[in-house]
């Protein structure tokens, strides 16, 4: 197998010429590789975005919860201290701190704008707690809070994210499965195109066998051609896919999941790997088709 790559890359004008150029299979191979790679770029972007979301949500799940304190203005500081005291002695709570007015303003900013007068609004005080690796007993904590600070409510809001994180994980898996299916479909279509080309060139193959050509020589003429076509088609598909992903609205401006569909940092290199994978798929599919077909001939 190691010797095949140099043979594939080395241009042999004579052996390239023995198989006539066939228009429709050439286009079919290039188009299939291009279209499948285009789809694979989006599946990859989906998978990576889902992965980022799953990681983010999982991370949030593992770390934080919030205690919301709703009390008359003259009691809020007292109940906040009581809550912090309770949390400081609660097993499984690594740390706890009350959010500042500035932090609360930032949380509300997406809904009410930047000029929200936090001081003049009867907003609850928020205390963010961070779990340690063992976790805490949420029911026991609620009862203790009820006793020590009646206005405090443990907002275990991160718990509902668990199914979403699982869903995001599944979405990532789905993206990867899609890439595998796209690769399999491409292999199937290229195999069919290779079979068509081999059938159309039956006389050429007969003549080549008659004059002493080895199967590997005949196969190489087809394999090289199909592999390079798939590589070229796939490179175009990958480029168009990357342009498509690049012109999607960015997550920073819109903030949603769908608008966060894209690559970040080194992730932009991954689509560039797809043409090489497509070429490898085409190489394997054509080689399989060629040797299967040649074995049927004497």
């Amino acid at each position: 197998m190691r010797a095949l790559l140099p043979q594939l890359l080395r241009r042999d004008r004579q052996s390239d010429r023995v198989v006539p150029r066939s228009g429709h299979t050439a286009w079919l191979t290039s188009f299939t590789a291009g279209a499948m790679t285009f789809l694979a770029v989006f599946a990859l972007a989906l998978s990576m975005a889902a992965g980022r979301m799953a990681d983010r949500w999982s991370d949030a799940l593992a770390r934080t919860a919030t205690v919301r304190i709703s009390a008359p203005a003259d009691q809020i500081e007292m109940q906040t201290r009581a809550v912090l005291d309770v949390l400081a002695t609660t097993p499984g709570v690594e740390s706890a701190r009350a959010l500042s007015d500035e932090e609360q303003r930032k949380l509300l900013e997406p809904w009410f704008g930047p000029d929200l007068p936090v001081d003049s609004l009867p907003l609850p005080r928020l205390v963010e707690l961070t779990e340690d690796s063992t976790g805490y007993d949420a029911d026991g904590l609620r009862q203790r809070l009820l006793a020590e600070a009646p206005g405090a409510v443990l907002d275990d809001h991160t718990r509902w994210r668990r199914p979403l994180a699982v869903a995001a994980g599944r979405l990532r898996l789905l993206g990867l499965v899609s890439i595998l299916l796209i690769g399999g479909t491409m292999a199937g279509m290229i195999t069919l195109a290779a079979h068509a080309a081999l059938a159309a060139n039956a006389q050429v193959i007969r003549v080549l066998r008659l004059v002493g050509a080895r199967d590997s020589y005949i196969a190489r003429a087809f394999v090289r051609r199909f592999t390079l076509r798939a590589l070229a088609g796939s490179a175009v598909g990958a480029l168009l896919g990357m342009i498509g992903v690049a012109i999607l609205p960015s997550a920073d401006t819109a903030g949603g999941f769908l608008t966060g569909l894209g690559f970040t940092g080194w992730g932009w290199l991954l689509p560039a790997v797809l043409p090489l994978l497509a070429a490898a798929v085409a190489f394997a599919a054509t080689r399989f088709a060629a040797f299967s077909r040649l074995k049927e001939l004497t």
């Binding site: 023995v18 006539p20 002493g212 050509a213």
Partner: peptide, 17 residues
């Protein structure tokens, strides 16, 4: 091989070997 000129057809055994 109808797409190749006569000389290339005649030398085909040399080419494939």
């Amino acid at each position: 091989l109808d797409h190749l000129p006569l000389a290339a057809n005649v030398t085909l055994p040399l080419t494939v070997s």
